[in-house]
Design a protein around this nucleic acid. Structure first.
Lengths: 366, 366
DNA sequence: CCCCTTTAGTTCGGATACTGTACTAACTCG
DNA sequence: CGAGTTAGTACAGTATCCGAACTAAAGGGG
């Protein structure tokens, strides 16, 4: 039936609106989504039945007319698992639908040159703890996403290459069982920069932009590209390899085969001024190709402070073709080191948002 | 009503399928789109009433069962106007829904350093002729798109900068009246590389790819980026400025302010081998950032022949991170110099495809 | 203090588009 | 020439959305 597709779509629209734009009244939702008050009403009762939204005790704003009862995404019933493997740590967290991080377990460990099996074993501990916490809080985890520092195909559970981990062609099909998650537990994986961008889009500096580029400097250098509120993953999930934009063709050889990749400069000793210029050089290319509204500096780049962001912006605007009319904003990440991890959980939560009917309705007799 | 939106959407899906994938039977459409035979039947009769599709005399393939009557996009009733202003010519064409170019009027003229008014005057002649031809053939033009060699905002009728025309901030709001087109005639404009990419997507080398980058070398150097079958225009319509990817930071200064842009190398005397290497350098960056399935070489680059494309592919694959698993294909354009012009008409036709109900139904008394 | 106005949210009838099944149409094969 | 096969249509059933009317709950004015 295509009729139920319509309903599914509308449920998704309403839920996404509440998750992204915050709690509001049914009347406001109707106005903002273009749906009828009547339709929104039935949609909300449906979402209430599924435990995805909840009515809030609104502080009655002394306005004329019947006071509204706001509804917002529910934080008490469902959530998702965010997982991360990085060069020097593993981590697991649980985030609920309101975007609140309910529990985090980080475990410092040198993962470079260690077999995937060992690292996943380390991740299992954190995962089990996070799942136990979720169960304790009565939160039902509907899926997980794993953030990895390398090339990942979201469609196939294979990590192609993670230069900084020294991993190649790791097969991650049995990940769910290796982590001792329930059978058929939905688990996906993605590049850490992509997931960081998703986190910024929903909860951070990207909220005010429709399209932006999130620069993730954690170990390697990657970028997550958001266009029209959606992640650009590329045909094979390889998009956003900002670290391999060539800045200096006569520079040092890079692991990728080329010379003078931006990433080679990051590893060598450069002062912030120099780094800002090189980064701006690479970002200029990005802006010329993608034309985003903004660049969000994440990871260690955010730690450099506002002057650094301003320096990058200055260098960037100087020689960019369209900057005269629409200069690309440069902002610092507001999520810090948690961006990729929170983004992983957010990605898993997106399964609910894009199809709320996967959560069963608790047929409330009445 | 949202119910009629569903219908509109389905009409659009069916029409797009016919335009993009060619004529076929109702049964085939049903199977391929996932709609029911019954639904497709009513959708097709609707599209027939609007004159957007037509039944074809199928050469009866001696297969068992009742023979199918194929329906295909109609070439007799509606079309769109494609316009182009380039450095050394203006052009107008009419393309019908089947993608057939019904008439072309090209007019060679040096447009550099000439006022916009004068150039538009030149374009008016070609436009008038094309429109007259269309009227003669009984084709109703439902809109026009103008291809321009510069930065254009598709939402606002302003050309920001066309370096090769030496135009800056040209206001093109009164374009329809200056071309003596009917009042309220829908006219849009876009970058020539974007439109070339659209043409390749629908009628050329891009048909077999979901996402690819079309490189347009006509005067300047631009790229049209297609992702998931849709044009990536960027937040302000500035995306795809491949010519300003820096290939050699110590190179010649470019009009954009930077040094060693790819475009500066194109103008100077380089042999094809050198050009292939520089182009591959720039494309490597594109592949790292966007991860397309293929690159389509257009304009004068297509004229270099297959060896050139192979050379580019070799250089490109050598140092690209993901090439080992998913090498990016390199193809030559199949449309030649007409790509942008045909693409302009195609863009205008897209108005019908995305909403077939804008064409009135000729209530056929039955 | 009562009633009018305003805004929020629900109920109900009506319209519409999709689905599945059953049907007719048109052709091939034996 | 009939059985089998595939194309396309007709029709009843169902689910959804919309609009209008309705109830609910507050403020404000006389």
């Amino acid at each position: 039936m295509d009729l139920s597709d319509v309903r599914r779509h509308h449920l998704s629209v309403v839920l996404e609106h509440l998750v992204c734009s915050g709690p509001r009244s049914r009347a406001a939702i109707a106005q903002e989504t273009g749906l009828t008050k009547a339709t929104v009403s039935t949609l909300i009762t449906d979402l209430l039945d599924r435990g995805l939204v909840q009515e809030l005790d609104t502080p009655t704003a002394g306005r004329v007319g019947r006071p509204a009862t706001d509804v917002g995404a529910a934080g008490h019933s469902v959530g998702a698992l965010g997982l991360e493997i990085d060069v020097d740590e593993v981590a697991a967290c649980v985030v609920d639908l309101t975007g609140t991080v309910r529990t985090v377990h980080r475990h410092t460990a040198g993962n470079r040159d260690v077999t995937a099996r060992t690292v996943i074993h380390r991740l299992r501990d954190a995962t089990q703890r996070a799942m136990a916490d979720a169960a304790h809080m009565g939160i039902d985890c509907i899926g997980a996403t794993l953030a990895l520092p390398g090339l990942v195909d979201p469609n196939e559970p294979t990590l192609f290459v993670a230069p900084n981990l020294h991993w190649f062609d790791a097969d991650l099909r049995s990940l769910a069982t290796q982590l001792r998650l329930p059978e058929h537990f939905p688990i996906t994986m993605d590049n850490e920069a992509n997931l960081g961008a998703l986190a910024e889009l929903r909860h951070g500096a990207g909220q005010q932009f429709d399209s932006f580029v999130f620069v993730s400097a954690a170990g390697g250098l990657g970028a997550g590209i958001v266009l029209d509120g959606r992640l650009l993953r590329g045909a094979h999930g390889f998009a956003g390899e900002l670290g391999h934009v060539v800045v200096d063709p006569s520079g040092k050889p890079c692991a990728c085969g080329a010379r003078g990749c931006l990433e080679t400069l990051l590893h060598s000793d450069v002062n912030p001024d120099e780094l800002a210029r090189h980064l701006a050089d690479a970002l200029r290319t990005v802006v010329h190709l993608i034309d985003p509204e903004a660049v969000v500096l994440g990871g260690s780049l955010a730690a450099f402070g506002d002057e650094f962001a301003l320096a990058v912006a200055d260098h960037l605007h100087a020689d960019t073709l369209g900057a005269r009319w629409h200069p690309c904003a440069v902002r610092r990440s507001t999520l810090g080191a948690d961006a990729a991890l929170v983004g992983a959980a957010t990605a898993a939560l997106d399964r609910i948002i894009s199809d709320p009917t996967i959560v069963p309705t608790r047929a409330l007799a009445h």
